[in-house]
Amino acid sequence: MITITAYSIILTIFVYLFALLVAKKFPSPFTTPVFLSTSIIIFVLVVNHISYEEYQPAKTIMTYLLGPATVALAVPLYKNRHILFKNFLPALVGVFTGTLFTIITAILLGKLFKLSNLILTSLSIKSTTIPVASEISKIIGGDQLLVAAFVMITGMFGAMFGLKILNGIKVSNPFSRGLSLGTISHGIGTSEAVKEGELQGAVSGVAMGISAIITSIIVPLLIPWLIK
């Protein structure tokens, strides 16, 4: 097991570095590092008959190390604190509106396709980072595996297409771009915002955190009313 864990960690690191090089040389939504590296790792694990349960200890170690990496977001946040304070109220309104909208639309679209209540419940928290979404799912009765899948898919979609969609609708303000990515596509979207600019990354990190707080408060209140 130790050998598989070490192999999985090394594999993940090298595949991600490879994906960064590919994304730099061939920029495309489908060469976005998170999407490309995830696809390659899944393929390698399947070919080598390594199950998710065997890969999970490596995932746990790397997830733990994300803590110090997340703290690093405080640096651009501190540097851009004056801009954040100046725009705090409109940003708060934007995050609240975006968070509420993504929850309600997810449930309404799910109902349109006649999805089960379990799927609807799990889908409602798709735009929140996994640690927060996992805790909320325990309260509202969601499925942990479905929640993790929906959160990952949402984050990847945001990372792959978020900036391109913003370009398409002519959203050029760095503050607005960061706010959008952080609100809708949590940490994975924030990683793309950081690459675009320091301000975008700082705003996206704040939006991700505020969105998580708002979701944890309103979803338990809305679910009984929206899912009947």
Rank of each mutant, 00 (worst) to 15 (best):
L66K: 07
M62Y: 08
L73I: 05
G67I: 10
T97M: 13
P90Q: 08
I61S: 11
I107W: 01
F96T: 15
K86L: 07
L73G: 03
T60G: 13
L109D: 03
A72Q: 11
A91Y: 00
L100F: 09
V71Q: 10
Y64Q: 14
T63R: 10
K114W: 09
V71T: 12
T105R: 07
R81H: 04
V93I: 15
A106Q: 05
H82Q: 12
I61A: 14
L65A: 09
L66P: 04
I104L: 11
A58W: 02
I107D: 03
H82F: 11
K79V: 11
L112G: 00
A69T: 14
K111Y: 13
L112D: 00
A58P: 01
P57W: 05
M62N: 09
A74F: 11
A72W: 09
A58L: 01
I104A: 10
T97H: 10
A106S: 14
L89G: 06
P68Y: 09
A106H: 02
K114P: 00
V93A: 14
N87R: 13
L66N: 12
L112P: 00
K59W: 03
V95G: 00
L73S: 08
L100C: 10
K59Y: 11
L115E: 07
K79G: 09
G67C: 11
A74M: 13
F96P: 00
L77D: 03
A91T: 04
K86N: 06
T70W: 07
L66W: 08
G110D: 01
F101T: 15
I83P: 03
K114C: 04
Y64C: 08
F101W: 06
T70P: 04
T63V: 14
P76R: 03
A72P: 09
I104K: 07
F85W: 10
T105M: 12
L100E: 03
G67S: 13
F88S: 15
T70R: 11
T97N: 04
L108G: 02
M62K: 06
T97D: 02
F85G: 12
Y78V: 12
V93T: 13
N80F: 08
Y64R: 11
L100W: 05
Y64S: 14
R81G: 01
T102E: 07
G94P: 04
L73M: 14
T102H: 01
G94A: 06
A58E: 02
P57M: 05
L73Y: 11
K111A: 02
Y78W: 13
P68V: 05
A72Y: 13
V71P: 06
T99D: 07
V93D: 10
I83M: 07
T105I: 15
K114Y: 14
K79H: 10
K86H: 09
R81L: 15
I83Q: 08
F113I: 05
L108R: 02
A58C: 05
I61M: 11
L109I: 06
G110H: 03
G67P: 06
G110Y: 01
L112E: 01
T105Q: 02
L65Y: 08
K86P: 04
T99F: 00
L112W: 01
L65R: 06
T105P: 00
L92N: 07
Y78R: 12
R81Y: 15
L73D: 02
L115V: 01
N80G: 08
F96L: 14
I103K: 04
V75P: 05
T99P: 02
F101G: 03
T60K: 13
K86A: 09
T63D: 15
M62V: 04
I104R: 10
K79Y: 12
T63C: 04
T102K: 04
